[in-house]
Design a protein around this nucleic acid. Sequence first.
DNA 1: TTGACAATTACAACCGATTGCATATTTTTT
DNA 2: AAAAAATATGCAATCGGTTGTAATTGTCAA
Lengths: 355, 355
Amino acid sequence: MDKDITIYDIAKELDLSPTTVSRALNDHPAVNKNTKQKIYSMASQLGYRSNMFASNLRRQRTNTIGVIVPKLNSNFMSSVIAGMEKVANEADYNLIISQSLETVEKEIANAKTMFNSRVDGLLVSLAFDTENMDHFEPFISKDIPVIFYDRVSDHKQFAGVVIDNVQASYEATTHLIEQGCQNIIHITGNLRRNVYADRLKGFKYALLDNDLPFSDASVIINNLSEDAGVEAAQQILQMDSRPDGLFVSNDTCAVHCMKTLTHAGISIPDEIAVVGFNNDPICRVVEPSLSSIDYPGYEMGEVAVRSLIHYLSGLADTSVTRITLRSELIIRSSSLRKGKENNKGKALALLPETK
Amino acid sequence: MDKDITIYDIAKELDLSPTTVSRALNDHPAVNKNTKQKIYSMASQLGYRSNMFASNLRRQRTNTIGVIVPKLNSNFMSSVIAGMEKVANEADYNLIISQSLETVEKEIANAKTMFNSRVDGLLVSLAFDTENMDHFEPFISKDIPVIFYDRVSDHKQFAGVVIDNVQASYEATTHLIEQGCQNIIHITGNLRRNVYADRLKGFKYALLDNDLPFSDASVIINNLSEDAGVEAAQQILQMDSRPDGLFVSNDTCAVHCMKTLTHAGISIPDEIAVVGFNNDPICRVVEPSLSSIDYPGYEMGEVAVRSLIHYLSGLADTSVTRITLRSELIIRSSSLRKGKENNKGKALALLPETK
DNA sequence: TTGACAATTACAACCGATTGCATATTTTTT
DNA sequence: AAAAAATATGCAATCGGTTGTAATTGTCAA
């Protein structure tokens, strides 16, 4: 366990001042090329590694990005994190990740921790029941950028990376209508969250544009869990006029709802056509395979970190307050009815083994 | 954007020395109770937050744990991380997470980054093709604890958190044999990794104990991906004597292999019975539902961080070099043959909706 | 030869908390 | 009442880089 090498050691070894060594290591232009070379080689020879804490202390920045995520262990969210990690790593930023577990309380606690850890910037996807944004105030007032992803804040002051949920939902609903569905149920999450509110909006618009009636009874709001899916199916089975289409805001919920319906003897897609959301791997495994909205998680993570770093580098384009990524309806067996293949050239993915 | 409050501000305000303030905030016994109270309330009144960097610089520790994970976006790994995050957070440690993406090169780079970030300890699950442990040497020689989880190192000097893969595999294989399988194929990953080597061992032992022959042809080694599963199925379809049992080291691979076989007209479990590994949610979704080894990811994450922190707190029990968690065979339709329900009281999970 | 100017390098203060040692104050003991 | 011990507080150095400003050296034109 040998002692750590500091810039002072390098300086002494080369008979220079720590100042010059520090500047050289930061590639400061005011240091002679030859000197730099000498310092570099001496540094690596001695096994020097910079002390981030000394540096951070002096520079008042941490090269650390905080990430608050509702729940880590879902396919979508872990893809997002994977994307974030990649970009952050490449740009020499560290990530501190914490989960709100879908509750405001934990989200507030997380925000506080992040603030105390003095993150340079914060990336947040809001918990189900977060109402106000007060816990992000400390960041704002200290000019620490906060960027939302997926579950964003409505307040115009906050930047966010999203997909066009209205459009995606509109597309999914229209697809169901094209397949002959006349009575579609939409299962979605807490409407305080933009993602769910927007999807409901898209659902309504699609009905409207196709002269189909909308009523509150067409919407089931739950927490989109497995159990909620099963429960929703039971609810549907009890309905007076059974729906012939189902658009669910989340694949897990959709799958378990669908399976429950199948077990109750309902045939999918003929009696009820189903579309999910997220395009989780699970979609290609369930029988019948589940149509879904492909949702670029990995990319969303990359973009979120990239714009945060962009902002931190002072290249901020403060006018850009929303970045919208593409999303795409993937049609599979769960919503494709025989003799209805008028899909206007949309992507098809009939066979389960198709990617 | 108001200036940050430091202990000097608090000291000045109360006409005390920074020393006392620092001690009070660390609950040092040599500070008077009343003084402490005054300092606490002044601190919160002024909105003081400790500067980790100054503190870390002085104390030469970071309260940060590094985590190297092969791939973040799998159900198992994200559960592990979720568990780690929970415990770390509770103990006021930060997590720095990075992915090796299953390659040594990235793993080495990650280790270097972690080392330069001066993590207090390191948690590692090895990449597929990691051969030697040289990149962890710097940690060892600086007395920074490295604990492995799941994919551990064989070297006795490294501690690790694991399940008993031999036992789990033995159980799964025995179960297949009990269901009447006489010719079982084992699909697994790179044998350099303990998890796969051990599972092969358990597989062999089970055959041996049941007087079934083992040959190299009974083992398929691949990267356990979706595609590998499809490919393995094609391989199986070409075999002269078609197997009647299949034990796969990973659910994703098992599921796609199974689906390919089903599509080729093979009936599961009657013609081929299948058992996977990990008990991913996907197991309960696929038709027929997939038997699998339940693998406590979340718990593994918790335990790993807990023992690392334990070690860092000096409570180290250096003799404990392996912590083994329970794992359990979950029997579902993919391996349960009719009229063979002699399962000696094992857990059953026949219906897809069963948790 | 000298002053202007650029190119390098160094000095020294600073970032904010921690801690060994010394000092001051109070309490206990004899 | 003096000495010893216990309690509470402060001084000042330290952790390892960073940076504004000053000093030194060299170059070139006048």
